[in-house]
């Protein structure tokens, strides 16, 4: 009798285990891998998984950007500054330059610090950056404006990506100009 019960229960348990534990686990690992990256900082390679346990805030831009990037970084920095210090420490602001020709890891470090003391600046090779930005649903393109004296500018999407502590995407904020929008999103993560 007992044997028959096990005979019936075991496959049910196995199916339940697959549905409720194994498949979600595999799916989660896939998502984490989708957003994973390994880029260059002035101190060497940095992986997204290096920040496990922290909440990464990721922004793609370029240093020569005179307006959109400084505005977005300032909005994020102001939102972080509104949090109590012990709460703000949960976040890691990461600026990723899509213009590695002009933005060196060393300059990016200073640039990121300028906006937020705990921010870091990263970049990589062009091909790899295309791949990562595509994974995040971010886009950019060099623009050569013959009417302007600038060598080139970079048109780019202006999303703020807030990741969860495991490295999955939690929020994608579209070009927020308002500190409170970002602040609200940050609060939700705590």
């Amino acid at each position: 009798m007992r044997k028959t019960l096990w005979f019936i229960l075991t496959p049910i348990l196995l199916i339940a285990l697959t549905i409720f534990v194994i498949i979600p686990y595999i799916e989660e690992q896939k998502t984490i891998a989708h957003y994973a990256f390994k880029l260059d900082s002035s101190e060497g390679h940095v992986k997204l998984s290096d920040f496990q346990g922290k909440i990464p805030i990721i922004y793609f831009g370029y240093m020569y950007c005179p307006d959109i990037c400084p505005t977005s970084l300032s909005v994020i920095a102001s939102a972080l500054a509104k949090l109590p210090k012990d709460k703000a420490e949960n976040f890691q602001l990461i600026f990723i330059s899509v213009d590695p020709n002009r933005d060196t890891p060393k300059a990016l470090k200073e640039y990121a610090h300028y906006f937020y003391s705990y921010a870091i600046g990263l970049t990589g090779n062009e091909k790899y950056l295309k791949e990562i930005t595509q994974n995040y649903g971010a886009y950019y393109a060099k623009e050569y404006d013959s009417n302007s004296t600038q060598e080139y500018t970079v048109a780019h999407t202006s999303f703020i990506y807030i990741m969860d502590k495991k490295g999955k995407l939690a929020h994608k904020l579209a070009h927020p100009q308002n500190t409170n929008d970002v602040y609200t999103a940050l609060l939700e993560m705590l």
């Binding site: 959109i68 886009y139 393109a141 009417n147 302007s148 500018t153 048109a155 999407t157 202006s158």
Partner: peptide, 13 residues
Amino acid sequence: EHVMSGAMMKMQH
């Protein structure tokens, strides 16, 4: 000025 080029923000003279 800034213009949208698809989802991208583009600055132009």
